[in-house]
Design a protein around this nucleic acid. Sequence first.
DNA 1: CTGAAAGCGCTAACAG
DNA 2: CTGTTAGCGCTTTCAG
Lengths: 349, 349
Amino acid sequence: MLVSLDNKRKRLSFVGLRKYMNPTIYDVARLTGLSIATVSRAFSNPELVREKTRQRVFEAAGVLHYSPNAIAQAMALQRTNKIAFLICKEGATILDEFYAGICNGIMRATNRLDYELVISTAADWKSAAGTSKNKQVEGVILGGNARPDMISEFQSRKVSVVLVNNLIPGLGVPCVVSDEYGGVRQALEYLINQGHRNIAMLAGRFSPYILNERYRAFSEIVQAHGLPVDTCYIKLCDPTVEGAAEACRELLSREDRPTAIFSTNDVVAVGAMKAARRLGLRIPEDLAVTGLDDSSVCRMLEPELTSVHIDCCEMGELSVRIMKELLSGEKGVPQVTVVPTELQIRGSA
Amino acid sequence: MLVSLDNKRKRLSFVGLRKYMNPTIYDVARLTGLSIATVSRAFSNPELVREKTRQRVFEAAGVLHYSPNAIAQAMALQRTNKIAFLICKEGATILDEFYAGICNGIMRATNRLDYELVISTAADWKSAAGTSKNKQVEGVILGGNARPDMISEFQSRKVSVVLVNNLIPGLGVPCVVSDEYGGVRQALEYLINQGHRNIAMLAGRFSPYILNERYRAFSEIVQAHGLPVDTCYIKLCDPTVEGAAEACRELLSREDRPTAIFSTNDVVAVGAMKAARRLGLRIPEDLAVTGLDDSSVCRMLEPELTSVHIDCCEMGELSVRIMKELLSGEKGVPQVTVVPTELQIRGSA
DNA sequence: CTGAAAGCGCTAACAG
DNA sequence: CTGTTAGCGCTTTCAG
């Protein structure tokens, strides 16, 4: 307290004068009679300063409403603590419930781990990258079908990347995915246990990775249960209600009509239900339908949609946790993380 | 190009040495033989530098892949260009389709106007404010039912605020809302034109502002058309499918059962449809149902839901535009901005 | 355990 | 039109 105050200060700022500015470390230093170095340490390396001194600092900070300026920290440390989440699905935005769910998990985790988050679509990011100030991002989480050139561009700029809802082996990029295979199995085995033998797959055209995993799972599992794998029973469609409805109509017009439709997502399932109804088929009596994603619409339909729940939030949280490991330079970051799914049984199957 | 390079440089950084770092303004200065001040001007005040010089700068910047460091700019300018969007609805996250829509508009606009955006819920923001580094935000857009104490706290910290989907007069805070009154009128007049005389209102418990506007609009408009305003026909309910279904069941059990249900949002309308169906009523023959929000579920239902479209995206974009005016210190910022709605007629009414 | 001082990359007077 | 220079708020050696 009795420290000399007469040393020449090049800094003359008084918080009283700069009335609209936040207090700085200098203000705290002056109030406590300590040096700015000590104040700095008290905040970022508390163990380096004596208990009592630390107390003094925090007390002064309290009355001044001081808290470290993140910008200045970033400048000094050459670190921004900022990561980005880019939605790479063509045409999708934060309005896509699936990616919104992942985003929600990411927000939770970044909040907890004290990262800053910027959210964008891959397209917007690209268009902004050139013109606008660059985003000083240390890592990016790429959701969905990220293009390889985008990935390698980030890598070349030493920006860490992790993929979510996508899996590309051999690139050294950690991936977080849901258990696609297991999810398909849960739905199929449920249908089979219900006695279904003619199960068709209505597959929305999603990213290659997703489509491929679900297709492979479907064929293998159906086969494993001794059921015929008739490729006519596997139908691709646009992942829209009407696209699915049209494809399903064709499926249901066959002489040996399937008794169950395994849809690769909920929107597609909605289309299937519409098609069935238009043909006068009752659900689930004449046709069982399952969805995948367990989105909010499931409980709004009539009958409610049986669907495979994907834990988007967990996927988001995990990708941040993995990003953190990457950024801290840890060794042995898991290359593939898979989060389990769970079948939600409702009225449609 | 032949400028002397022998002036004493306190800065000796070579981008070649600092291999993992981004090029700085010094690198560009060295490569062009210009001073850092000129390089800086070329980027932020192009009109202050000769055409030819500017060219030289941009060319060098190109080969070096230089672009100004936003952190350093923020530090020098004492401005972060960062704004926040806080979802203030209790329990809601980015998964709420309505707020996701607003968020989408906000993202578009911030991207275009070169603002940085941080997204959070009011609750998360509060909990992070104390512990984590403060977010250096210049303005906040508050979505939904923002608590007055939160607003005034921002104001006291000289953080600009604009409200979206909420309207509080007398606070000097600009508000962006949808045309609640007009939206209700569109739905009601459509029902009345269809010949309905017994119209009930199924009102989800939303924020006071929204609830109040819709309630007022309903009573006034029904009255203006010479229909009786029986308060028994106005029913509050939880804004969930089951909450609405239960409330609607009561409504439909009256001896003078309404022939149309005006629901104050789509989820509530779904509940109404479920209730009707459980009672064996056909939609729209026995009961017409309208929704409000025009969310994605409308086209998934059977029959599809007639609903009042709210242009969330526009609301988001407008709030950013207004925030920009606020931040640039413009005079005469509009205090209330209302965006029009549009009735989407489908099968349910 | 604490202080002095040198940056981090950029902008904005102030001089030429 | 261009260059010099003093910060912006904080961290971090290097000395005490």
